[in-house]
Design a protein around this nucleic acid. Structure first.
Lengths: 276, 276
DNA sequence: TACGCTATGGAATTTTTATTCCATTATTTT
DNA sequence: AAAATAATGGAATAAAAATTCCATAGCGTA
């Protein structure tokens, strides 16, 4: 049991959690970790449920509550149940609350981006061309090497794709333009290029795609429009329309599409290997 | 006990409530009245508490639950708890299932990522710490230079932040580790570091943040947990929990938070300039 | 007003859940 | 390496909560 007084608000709780989780023994740190990650469950779960979630015994979880300054689990849960009402209102009301804090306040902006992201995701789900997506996966699954290119706001997408491929042990190069070295000659027979670009289209990306196409390589394009300059590379075009907030967009849909593409390619490759 | 089947969603529940509360006897109507007015309490209260609130005996409340189509209070409460606890689905096993049934098609994967992204965004809206966010904006708005650092899966976020800052003519450097040049000495008095890192935390990011902190510079951290190694840099910690799909995540919430932060900083700077 | 039926309150019971205790295992200190 | 200390797991116990049951009160009908 701790001699300290118990936290009475979520902030105090989090603060205290961060403060003492460093010095906790293994099992109790597991509790801390789990609780930090699942704060919302505490109000509506039993010790038993939480302790299996954290991978510890109920008694360990109990000790954790006491270290946090509560007399036991019940008291801790009480705190969470009291602050629960604030979180309850549904998504729409919460956004209202965020917006209500003033026009270009950070929270209002966040609300806009969250909402834009949601709309974009919904839109993606209903407009994506599944046939093209599958073709793209097939093509990429067979590629000896994948070249990823994307600049400016497409760059985060390109780099995340590269990260994903690397994690799945798939040979991929990110053409990131560092040092203005243009490793286009690394594109060999059978290689596939993934080109990501949005209006205003960046020339380097188009050039690389065109170059690859001229060599006879296949190109997969992720863009915000089916027309646009990528058309003449006869690429497999995946179009994503993202909802803008002012001059910016949150990229939620684009990144979701990209990562789904990457993981699909990984899955397909495994199947191909198993099949042989 | 009702012969009808129990409601499985809030909508169904409300519908049913409106439908039958007309024809209820006095005490049970009191229950209906109270429940309609205090739906949010059901998940976190006991029958005893609720019945006091409604001004009836526990047994009356019990009968009310049964009229609503549940076997008892526990079952009714379960429904409310489930709808609340934004069931963070366990995508790892969900993907296993997809594979087992042979449906790991790109479209299925895409659907999972879209769903995960949506949940992450919703969760972000309800858990973000507005106070810290505003503090972070204030600090960044005054910084002569912003240093952005993030590796691996945090790198897309870092690069997008840099892109946004650049578009808004805000001085920012992306510490991307190219050439293993470590431009940490570019950090000058007053500069602020934005460090983005997720478990397992990458050492370079932590090091840079710690270095800046030791120099007396402020640090803003975007991470997936409030504890974690960034704590000792006394950073302004913004935590985002993102739903994973298998080993990957769509980054929707993280990027939304990051871009909202960047745009807020831009807005704040304009205000500061206008004010002078 | 007497009869039958429904609704109600409250106590008794059962079930679930929290909490404690202690033997065993790990870890640290000397 | 031995002793002391701390941490852990699991079962036993206590507490709290849900649920049932039944005697009685209320109400409508004949």
């Amino acid at each position: 049991m701790s001699d300290q007084t118990a936290p009475v608000s979520l902030e105090e709780f989090n603060h205290r959690l961060a403060e003492i989780s460093e010095t906790m023994p293994k099992r109790l740190r597991q509790c801390a970790e789990f609780v930090a990650q699942n704060t919302d469950r505490i109000a509506v779960s039993t010790v038993a449920e939480l302790s299996v979630g954290a991978g510890v015994q109920p008694s360990a979880f109990m000790r954790f509550c006491q270290l946090m300054g509560f007399s036991g689990f019940s008291e801790m849960q009480k705190m969470f149940r009291e602050t629960y009402a604030q979180k309850w209102p549904d998504y729409a009301t919460r956004l209202e609350n965020l917006r209500a804090t003033g026009d270009d306040s950070p929270s209002a902006l966040l609300a806009e981006f969250v909402e834009a992201g949601r709309l974009s995701l919904e839109n993606l789900a209903s407009t994506v061309d599944l046939e093209t997506l599958e073709k793209a996966v097939d093509v990429l699954a067979e590629a000896p090497m994948i070249h990823v290119v994307g600049f400016r706001r497409a760059f985060p997408v390109a780099s995340y794709l590269s990260y994903a491929f690397e994690k799945m042990n798939i040979a991929a190069v990110l053409h990131d333009g560092v040092g203005n070295l243009n490793p286009r000659h690394a594109i060999r027979e059978g290689d596939v290029v993934i080109a990501i670009t949005f209006a205003p289209y960046s020339q380097e990306t188009i050039d690389l795609a065109a170059y690859a196409h001229d060599l006879g390589n296949k190109v997969v394009a992720i863009s915000d429009s089916l027309s646009g300059p990528m058309r003449k590379t006869e690429a497999l075009m995946l179009s994503v329309s993202e909802v803008d907030v002012g001059a910016f967009r949150a990229l939620s849909a684009t990144i979701s599409l990209a990562i789904a593409l990457a993981v699909s390619v990984g899955a397909k490759r495994e199947k191909l290997i198993d099949g042989k």
